[in-house]
Design a binder for these strands. Sequence first.
DNA 1: CGGGAAATCACGCAAACGCGTGGTTTTACA
DNA 2: TGTAAAACCACGCGTTTGCGTGATTTCCCG
Lengths: 215, 215
Amino acid sequence: MSSPSPLQIWLIEDNTTFRRTLARVLESQDGFECTEGFARCEHALAATERGLKPDIILLDVGLPGMSGLHALPLLREKLPDTKILILTVFDDDDKIFRAICAGAAGYLLKTASPEEITAAIREVVGGGAPMNGRIARRVLEMFSQFGRPTKDYDLSEREIEILNHLTTGQLKKEIAQALGLSIHTIDSHLRKIYIKLEVNTRSEAVAKALKEKLV
Amino acid sequence: MSSPSPLQIWLIEDNTTFRRTLARVLESQDGFECTEGFARCEHALAATERGLKPDIILLDVGLPGMSGLHALPLLREKLPDTKILILTVFDDDDKIFRAICAGAAGYLLKTASPEEITAAIREVVGGGAPMNGRIARRVLEMFSQFGRPTKDYDLSEREIEILNHLTTGQLKKEIAQALGLSIHTIDSHLRKIYIKLEVNTRSEAVAKALKEKLV
DNA sequence: CGGGAAATCACGCAAACGCGTGGTTTTACA
DNA sequence: TGTAAAACCACGCGTTTGCGTGATTTCCCG
């Protein structure tokens, strides 16, 4: 099933021993072909200039010269169809966050066994996003931070509705028209919103509403 | 290793057949104890009032009465230490997003085999966050949307600086004072910002800046 | 070296805004 | 059934804004 066109894999990893060992492991897998190994991102980027396009890249983030995190968006631009898996020892939230935002297709730790790494590659090919369990947990936790309404300002439905119109830049007059109300009513609601949000200007209210996900 | 205190699992799932089958499968696992099965979230919430606290909950989202997504935050509040796994047929971005934001510890699909479900439970106990591969991919894609500067409006440094002041609700006068400039200069910058962002009001500019992560 | 973009400053006007202060009607709940 | 909160409406005042139309200076780059 895989013999006609083996999966082309690149390794970007400065530790030569680890890179070669991993390359050997991957090569031994049916359908895998470890076509290139680079010690620096710059070399990999140069290779893309020569028109080479792997299916998968295993990318270390702690590299001499250009870091993997810096290279990621560049690689993604050059190789939009290539799935890039992070393979690193770092598991801090900032690196995870930046890697994912930059378009990493998965995040593995170097503590992973060869079996786990090959399984991850197969998973990413199958449309998945392999992650170390702890990393996945962190991702979900970070994600859940986005949905918090933070504080409760006890805004009424009408007030939230008007707050929504504010974020579209509408004038009091326009909001009144849109809701079929008098401009004085909008003004009245607006004041209560200001009091509840503890702001004094429209833009401050909009900023607070958006920053704290009230709308 | 697990005999002293088996893992207590609740199922919240309206399909009686599926729930009972799954309960039987889980019970057959070493160290698992399927203590309760509910057809409605309301029943589960009532059970928490009686002081019951499972280790794991498998929660369907498409339920009669209160939906699983509505119940999730309530369950999380009652049972802060319980890991809640979503087990559903739905895989649309909105449901995934809401479930994760509400604190789901994992997201499984009902197409999962019994083996996959038991593996997922063991994974969540081990500090992981089991997800269906496709779901995990979606999560990373959604996540990566947060880091985008979206479009490039070609704002100058000064303009971005002033845009920042705008999001704090400052008046032109105040910004001028803060930057040691004339109010006319701020006005001038403001107009260019409006032109570049294609807006006509301050709040619209603030909204656009925050929504598109320009600041 | 010269052109263009960015940054700075200036004046005036109509429109919109924030705010004080008043009111009535509708809705919700005890 | 009463009462409080929300929603609705109104007028006026002083301030701020958005915009048209100008100008000068600084700095980068071809």
